[in-house]
Design a binder for these strands. Structure first.
Lengths: 148, 148
DNA sequence: TATTGTTATACTCTATAACTATA
DNA sequence: TATAGTTATAGAGTATAACAATA
């Protein structure tokens, strides 16, 4: 006898959780050979796109609490992928930047994640994918309104 | 100066994580007055739809490991919402069922979660919502193929 | 006073190994 | 031998309070 979850399947959140779990498992499998996880890849990507940003700015961009950024950057710095330079104008803050190895690692991992993304959305047309991203953005914004 | 996450916005997983975080925060806020969380609501819903199922079947339906189901049912049993009856044919297993209070609590929470879902998808048409659910299902199935 | 980075801490969620009782 | 439930435990991930240095 099979168990039904039809009552839950009506809810966007349930479908989203199951889809996200599938994506997260696959992306972590994808990133493992590169020595990265979803969160470290995200941090690397944002630092690469915004060199000189502070830990507080990175925390804000990724919706991570400041204390948890410390360990994250510790890990990336120890791996030789990120540099903590002192900010010129504000001596409280660091200016984060990628090392040469950080840039290379990010470039390779980014290619792998693009392939992962294509795999996960193989059942969707190009228009479908764009539409999905728009709808996810709509849900995210609805949540921001609710939170205030 | 604002920090850009445009490089990550290309990825389905990033959009999905942000949308899911928004949904999870809102649904937990929604369920708190009912004494439930996302996972306890899900368990209640599946038990209500499949009375007599075992803990192992529930674990499989919700993709939760068996040991973690034990604490979950402990909590719902202590709250007087779920009963562990002995399975007639297999004395190793429990037959899970909702109490009267469990059914009432589920009915009320289900109404609240439907309102939450409508709120989170307020920016989408009825057809959009159906399309979103289909696409999430497509991503979930792509993940199952990848896992094997 | 407020903010940046930090430490310490705690709480939740999740995953694994090993046990018991039944099958 | 295999499965259901359980216990113990460990690892992530996430959140809060409080501190020193700087603004």
């Amino acid at each position: 006898m099979s168990v039904s979850d039809a009552a839950l399947r009506r809810f966007t959140g349930y479908g989203m959780k199951r889809a996200f779990n599938a994506i997260q498992a696959d992306v972590n499998r994808t990133l493992k050979p590169h020595g990265l996880r979803m969160v470290t890849f995200s941090a690397l990507s944002v630092i690469g796109e915004n060199p000189g940003l502070s830990q507080a700015q990175l925390a804000d961009a990724l919706s991570i609490e400041r204390p948890n950024i410390v360990m994250l950057i510790d890990e990336l710095e120890a791996a030789g992928l990120v540099l903590r330079e002192r900010h010129a104008a504000d001596r409280r803050a660091y200016a984060l930047a990628l090392t040469g190895e950080g840039r290379r690692r990010l470039a390779r991992a980014d290619r792998a994640v693009r392939a992962h993304d294509a795999r996960m959305t193989a059942g969707l047309s190009t228009e479908d994918r764009a539409r999905l991203m728009e709808m996810l953005g709509s849900v995210e914004r609805a949540g921001e309104e609710a939170t205030g």
